[in-house]
């Protein structure tokens, strides 16, 4: 079985305003670069729930890569995290 990397992107109001869906799209777009990046595992993106804790400080956009919680993310930050995690699972 191919190992699978799970990426969860929070889609609460603050995160969507701060570009969460764009981050989800950029992670999705990595699938097209599979051969260039020589990735053996697959990535699964879930952008369907709000997972930010509203009572805490603003951490948007919040992304969880393979169980690791990343706050105030950008596309480039998440993509490089995902790629390095996928190389590890090789």
């Amino acid at each position: 079985m191919k190992p699978r990397l799970d990426v969860e992107v929070c889609v609460c109001t603050q995160c969507v305003m701060n570009g969460a869906l764009d981050i989800a799209d950029s992670v999705e777009s990595l699938k097209k670069l599979k051969s260039q990046l020589r990735l053996k595992s697959s990535v699964h993106v879930d952008a369907s729930r709000g997972i930010c804790d509203k009572d805490k400080h603003d951490c948007s956009p919040l992304v969880i890569v393979d169980g690791e919680r990343l706050e105030k993310t950008t596309s480039e930050m998440v993509m490089s995290k995902v790629i390095s995690a996928m190389r590890k699972t090789d």
């Binding site: 609460c12 109001t13 603050q14 969507v16 305003m17 709000g50 509203k54």
Partner: peptide, 12 residues
Amino acid sequence: LMGIFAAKEIDF
């Protein structure tokens, strides 16, 4: 409007 929703902490 998204700015207004965010300011009011609307969570849909």
